[in-house]
C-alpha cells in the first residue's frame, strides 16, 4: 500500500495510505483531508479536487488532457504543477508521492 504525503497550504503534513488503482482524490477524501472535496465523485466536472503534484513527481503521471486542462484553466491559483487529483491514478511504485494542497478550492 503506497503511503502518500499531503502538505497543506499552512504546512501541516498528512500521511495517507493509498491503494493502487485508486485516485489521489479518493485517497485524500477517504482520509478526510481538509482542502480536497471531490464533489462530483471523480467525473472531472467540479474542479473541487485541485491539488499540486510535487515537481519531482510530475512526470510519473500522464499529462492532463482535454476536459482536465480546460477545467484547470479556471481554478484558483493555478500553477504549472496543478492537477485535478481525481484524474491521478495511484500506481505501483508511488510510495512517498508528495502532493501540495491549495489554500482553497474557490
Amino acid at each position: 500500500m503506497p503511503t502518500l504525503t499531503f502538505i497543506e497550504h499552512s504546512g501541516t503534513t498528512h500521511q495517507v495510505n493509498g491503494e493502487v488503482g485508486q485516485s489521489v482524490m479518493q485517497a485524500a477524501t477517504f482520509a478526510m483531508l481538509p482542502g480536497i472535496q471531490g464533489d462530483c465523485g471523480g467525473a472531472c466536472s467540479c474542479a473541487t479536487c485541485h491539488a499540486y503534484v510535487d515537481e519531482a513527481w510530475m512526470e510519473r503521471f500522464p499529462p492532463a488532457e482535454g476536459t482536465e486542462v480546460d477545467m484547470l484553466d479556471n481554478v484558483t491559483e493555478r500553477r504549472a504543477n496543478s492537477r485535478l487529483s481525481c484524474q491521478l491514478v495511484i500506481a505501483e511504485g508511488m510510495d512517498g508521492l508528495l502532493i501540495h494542497l491549495p489554500a482553497s478550492q474557490y
Binding site: 472531472c44 466536472s45 474542479a47 476536459t67 480546460d70 477545467m71 484553466d73 479556471n74 481554478v75
Partner: peptide, 9 residues
Amino acid sequence: CNRPGDHMA
C-alpha cells in the same frame, strides 16, 4: 458542451 473552461468561468 465540451467547453469546461466556459463552465468554470
